[in-house]
């Protein structure tokens, strides 16, 4: 599939028919359908299995793999001209923007409940009459208390300690430090790549991946701690809901980002990427910056404030 057409490399490369996308669509629907049946079955306690979901995931995985290898092969064959690469740049940029908006929905929800819903339920603000239904509820976010006693809140929340010195024992602080430094290491890896310093590239990329993995490990620790010691669960009211949806989806994105960086590592080791042509790497690094920025927002709004 790698022959160039008449116009030569200056022309925009329009790929031929491809079997991959429709397979992905098919895999996606199996995955989603399987997941939905599983959830519904587990809710009613009926027999449930994840077979369909895994078949779907398998199809998606294989298809994505061949999609990316195709693109890489085409690129090596010189089919991707500067204009096509710009398309990738726009594509990745707007994709990240869409991710930003996805998180914005959850940040917005957090903002709304903290500033409106919870105070109203606790008798403050414009709709404070609502407290009529929840006598005795006081709207203290940091306490994690809930309006209804049917929904016991956590024994303790994840809020940051009040004195800066005790931050040294505060896990999220270290996680922040880790992600923040990983932004630098990925940047150095990129500089290495651009200046032809393959050793530096490999080393810094390796460090970044390691930082990502450590972050995920600590995050898992934190979750276990929250679930087992603090009683802070998905079910413990709005504090737990916002906490887990934000940190959870972030963690999921870090996992994805780390995986992407690992794939970059594989490609680096195979000798891919040149100082002036390495969009695959750049895209992953942008994604990584994005994940970092989201964490900064998280640290500020979920933990500190």
């Amino acid at each position: 599939m790698t022959e160039q057409h008449a116009g030569g490399q200056d022309n925009y490369f329009v790929p031929h028919d491809s079997k991959i996308p429709v397979w992905i669509a098919f895999g996606l629907i199996l995955f989603m359908f399987g997941f939905a049946s599983f959830l519904n079955a587990s809710k009613t306690g009926a027999n449930s299995n994840l077979l369909l979901l895994w078949i779907g995931a398998g199809i998606i995985g294989v298809s994505l793999y061949s999609w990316f290898t195709n693109v890489i092969r085409e690129n090596h064959a010189g089919l991707a001209n500067a204009q096509l690469r710009r398309s990738y740049v726009w594509g990745m940029g707007w994709f990240i923007f869409s991710e930003v908006m996805f998180f914005a929905a959850f940040f917005g929800a957090l903002y709304y409940v903290r500033n409106f819903a919870v105070p109203w339920l606790g008798g403050e603000g414009d709709k404070g009459v609502s407290n009529y239904l929840w006598p005795g509820f006081s709207p203290d976010w940091a306490s994690g208390e809930n309006p209804s006693t049917y929904r016991p809140g956590p024994a303790e929340t994840m809020a940051a300690p009040s004195s800066i010195t005790s931050w040294l024992a505060y896990l999220p602080f270290w996680n922040t430090a880790i992600l923040l430094s990983s932004s630098f290491t990925i940047h150095w890896a990129h500089t290495g790549l651009k200046s032809g310093n393959r050793k530096g590239l490999t080393a810094w990329l390796g460090v970044t991946i390691a930082l990502g993995v450590i972050f995920l490990f600590l995050q898992a620790e934190e979750y276990i701690h929250a679930y087992e010691q603090l009683g802070l669960t998905l079910g413990s009211g709005i504090y737990g809901s916002t906490f887990y949806i934000l940190t959870g989806f972030h963690g999921f994105h870090v996992t994805l980002g780390t995986f992407m960086l690992m794939m970059c590592m594989v490609r680096v080791l195979k000798g891919h990427f040149s100082p002036d042509d390495h969009f695959g790497f750049e895209a992953c690094s942008w994604y990584w910056y994005f994940v970092d920025v989201v964490w900064m927002g998280l640290f500020l709004f979920v933990y500190v404030l």
């Binding site: 929800a109 409940v113 819903a117 339920l121 609502s130 239904l133 929840w134 809930n146 309006p147 209804s148 049917y150 929904r151 998905l234 079910g235 413990s236 009211g237 709005i238 737990g240 809901s241 916002t242 887990y244 949806i245």
Partner: peptide
Amino acid sequence: TSFFDAAG
């Protein structure tokens, strides 16, 4: 979770 549930 209780995003849309006042009890939580």
